[in-house]
Design a protein around this nucleic acid. Structure first.
Lengths: 152, 152
DNA sequence: ATTCATATGACATCATGGTTGTCATGTCAG
DNA sequence: CTGACATGACAACCATGATGTCATATGAAT
């Protein structure tokens, strides 16, 4: 496959992502509204729930966002009692952020709800196709991320 | 495949999209900055360049955005001489928006630049894999979009 | 051990753009 | 003819990504 053809296919792929993110954010926000969460705070809660306690800058690195914005979300979640600070054995100044039991329970409920609804999506595709799509998306993500990193 | 497994795969897919959109927007914006365009105005210009003249509400429908925001982009593009209004034979009030020669030329240049850079992305995947990923993404997009539409 | 670059939290500011609302006017179906 | 809806214009709000600053803590280099 020529580079032009590949470029055209990746171009088409990327074009799907914007509306997909917008629409999924709308759906997710709608069910999150009752809990006072946004997609941003939800993403932070998810990161902590899945990968354990970490510092604010670490969350930012993982989500490709500046630590300042993450700090806002963490402060918001902390006010709601969904996350809490813990002393960092490896760093006195930089505290670890961890989910509280309430935060972990809330996210578990949110994810269960979402998984149930997502089960009906893209029903005409096989598990193999979904796996292929995931692999491709991760590769594109990796390469685009590299480009974005080069900008800094 | 069970619904739970499918849900988990689509969940993983969607999780890739947010950082992908963010990072690609950063890369695209960086090269667009010189032309005074943003990803928003670029999307409108792209729509007009690829699908021909259409009304502001039509662009909004196609991009899953409110016509008010599209109007802002159109006004901006119009000020820069990249798009222009034409009388709509099917509607006296609702004008058609079309690219000017300058706008069409600018977008052609932008797309050529982007295609060239995208040719190096996800190089370890076959054309078939890319095609599969595109089909899956379109299906997910369609179903998520349906959910979002149901919210209104 | 001292020094210096960097990391971190806290705080502030700004721009983009998605969302919502209003109003006058044009359009179209009943 | 009338009422429901579409459209352009304009306005306002707000979440959030981007950026900058500053004091302090940390770690590495000398």
């Amino acid at each position: 496959m020529s580079d032009e053809d590949r470029g055209a296919m990746v171009y088409a792929l990327l074009r799907e992502t914007r509306p997909l993110v917008l629409n999924s954010a709308r759906v997710v926000e709608a069910s999150l509204r009752g809990d006072g969460l946004s997609v941003g705070t939800r993403a932070v809660l998810e990161m902590l729930a899945e990968h354990g306690p970490m510092t604010v800058p670490d969350i930012g690195d993982r989500l490709d966002l500046a630590r300042q914005g993450i700090q806002r979300h963490v402060n918001d979640l902390s006010t709601r009692g969904l996350v809490e600070s813990r002393v960092n054995p490896a760093h006195r100044r930089s505290v670890l952020i961890a989910t509280t039991p309430a935060g972990a329970a809330l996210f578990a409920r949110i994810r269960a709800d979402e998984l149930a609804r997502l089960g009906a999506m893209a029903a005409e595709h096989s598990a193999g196709d979904l796996a292929t799509a995931l692999r491709v998306l991760r590769s594109v993500n990796r390469d685009v991320r590299q480009r974005a990193t080069d900008l800094r």
